[in-house]
Design a protein around this nucleic acid. Structure first.
Lengths: 281, 281
DNA sequence: GAGACCGATACCGCGGAGGTATGACCCCAG
DNA sequence: CTGGGGTCATACCTCCGCGGTATCGGTCTC
């Protein structure tokens, strides 16, 4: 199976529509139809059911979509890492990715400690929207990532646990609920006049719901201060607290584990050094 | 990057020789040279240094070999799993791979327990040489594997620990060393008249050394009985002991962890069921 | 039943992958 | 120092196959 075929297949699967997929791929519809047909014949498996409105995935198609995306990411990663190895032949460097606006205290400590190491290399920090870190690690745009269990999917990576923390509810100071000493998650997310905010999905779209749409932590904390929303955050977010915000511990929230993650088979001594430093924090 | 280019590259890297690689690929040498050259230009990285005796990998080439092999395995896995999903549309089945001749007691218990589950599917057990299990899982020939830490590389898999055990030295009954109550690994591997046996590498070749070459457990136990060798095994190997063999505990050997491993993103309910059963043992 | 929409088929043209022949370079033998 | 063997690169040709256009067959809608 060639990566071209795989890219075609994934695009068609994503669009559920051969014509639109062809457009996205910058080609005409007939050759795309033909390519899909050939792939199906070679695999000996129907990948799509053709309907008058478009195409839908079969079970085999679902499998190929899932596995194929992973394979494409692996190929991208191979390409990118090869390029980076070639460029960085003279001076080594390292790309670390983390969720924008989170763990900054930890990150500062980590980067300072690592920079003090004798064999430290330059660390480029890439802050990206929540949920994108794992993908960046998978396709080679990053060498190391700071991930958070249970939010990020860290399957396929090597990980070292950095911190484990509880979660708390952040709500406007002066709100009636701000005086209670503890709360359950169910109670926290059902305060009538404080709807849960909505974070963007991986594709940038927002789920439906009553809460405000938001993009970063400073923004949402301002909305909390204005009495428009309340949200559950790891307790390290206390570091961001200013006037106008109150904190209520949650009795039954899942623990948040912050880990440092890197791709398997990473032979980079720089990655090893950063991980070792992180483990000593 | 197309998988064809990647396959070419990996073959050349493995042979360190364009001509032989071309032969293995069933093609002529010039187009292969050209393909490698194109790949290098597209990646903007030298992958090989050309020498009068053949080619050797650059650092960038090492990276592409490592990452490229993983990517090719991912593509193979995607293909195989898609085919299997299509075939198994009617009756689901499952391929489990384990080291030939090891953990059989555990395996019997696991398979029996799983077969008794209400939603159990057929489990095909593939026993393969030590070290091959992880590769089979990576390229889709197997759905689940029994692996052993620290011997197998389980990076990239989801795992559940099944058992943890100590290691012991197996040696001929009546041998002078067989009467001691404990020993270190260093002592165990340096008994003058009992050289450590040599196991085949992944490619089937054997490392150099004085000990006998061997292929399976029954064979090696017979050699031990004949006073030709002694070896370190997990203590569960006591189950295989017959007359003529003695066991000495080791004070400093690494613990052996037996795990059940499966590929990430496995959506198969059958895999989930088997893992759940294993967790209850 | 006409039209819109969708994927599949038929047919054509061209880029690129692979083949053969040969060149450029290095190494060693004599 | 020179010739021959070995290695990878280049030149040139052929042909397969990928992508393009035109069109068909089937289905849903109005």
């Amino acid at each position: 199976m060639e990566t071209r075929e795989l890219r075609y297949f994934v695009t068609v699967a994503e669009e559920s529509h051969v014509g639109r997929a062809a457009e996205r791929l910058g080609m005409a519809q007939p050759p795309l139809s033909r390519a899909i047909g050939q792939l199906e014949r070679r695999l000996g498996a129907d990948l799509f059911v053709r309907t008058p409105r478009g195409v839908t995935l079969t079970n085999a198609g679902e499998t190929l979509l899932r596995e194929g995306r992973a394979a494409l990411a692996a190929i991208e990663a191979a390409e990118r890492r090869t390029r980076r190895t070639a460029e960085a032949a003279d001076r080594a460097s390292l790309v670390l990715t983390a969720k924008a606006g989170a763990s900054s205290e930890l990150m500062v400590k980590l980067l300072d400690a690592y920079a003090a190491e004798p064999d430290a290399v330059d660390v480029e920090v890439v802050l990206s929207p929540p949920g994108h870190q794992a993908q960046m690690l998978r396709d080679g745009r990053a060498d190391v990532a700071i991930l958070h269990r249970p939010f990020d999917d860290m399957s396929g990576f090597e990980v070292d646990v950095l911190t484990v923390e509880e979660q708390v509810l952040i709500l406007p100071a002066g709100h009636p609920s701000s005086t209670v000493t503890s709360m359950t998650v169910a109670e926290a997310t059902s305060i009538p006049d404080l709807p849960t905010p909505r974070w963007p999905r991986l594709d940038g779209s927002y789920p439906d719901g009553p809460g405000p749409e938001l993009r970063d932590l400073t923004q949402v904390l301002q909305l909390v201060r204005l009495g428009r929303t309340a949200l559950v955050l790891p307790e390290s977010a206390r570091a961001y607290l200013r006037d106008g915000l109150a904190v209520v511990p949650l009795s039954d929230a899942a623990q948040v584990t912050t880990v440092i993650a890197w791709p398997p088979h990473s032979t980079s001594t720089a990655v090893a050094g950063l991980v070792r430093t992180a483990g000593r924090l």
